[in-house]
């Protein structure tokens, strides 16, 4: 019996699960957002001030933070998985992995700064 193929470390299960959980959350969140902002409470104009008022509500703020994390992970992990699917491996795979991680950190940090500032928390 041949075991010539190299075994690789399993780090994919948690990514696979989080990708699906984040997708489920994003679908529900986007549907709720569209319903709330464009059907039930249709605004004539989209104003930064209105967004700031909503962000001051701790519940909405928490929702936006979770949305930011879910969207960042889902988008960047999707790109990462697609590059592996295209055959990226070795050093190039590591470079892409850490580049996407860095991009994710920047997005989340900047998003958090913005949300905190808009809600008047900082």
């Amino acid at each position: 019996m041949s075991q010539s193929r190299p075994r690789t470390v399993n780090t994919q299960g948690i990514s696979w699960l989080l990708h699906r959980l984040s997708a489920t959350f994003l679908i529900v969140a986007l549907f709720g957002h569209l319903l709330q902002q464009h059907v039930l409470n249709h605004a004539y104009e989209i104003e930064l001030a209105d967004s700031a008022i909503r962000m001051a509500d701790i519940g909405y703020f928490a929702f936006i933070v979770v949305f930011l994390l879910a969207a960042s992970f889902h988008g960047l992990n999707g790109v990462y998985q697609a590059t592996i699917g295209e055959g990226m491996s070795g050093r190039r795979k590591q470079v892409i992995r850490w580049s996407l991680t860095l991009i994710g950190v920047v997005i989340v940090v900047q998003g958090m700064r913005l949300a905190l500032a808009m809600g008047g928390y900082i």
Binding site: R7, T8, V9, N10, Q12, G13, S15, I84
Partner: peptide
């Protein structure tokens, strides 16, 4: 199960 849950196992199915 360990063999198919490696990174070149089931996770690569798109």
């Amino acid at each position: 199960m360990e063999l198919v849950e490696q990174s070149n196992g089931v996770w690569r199915c798109q």
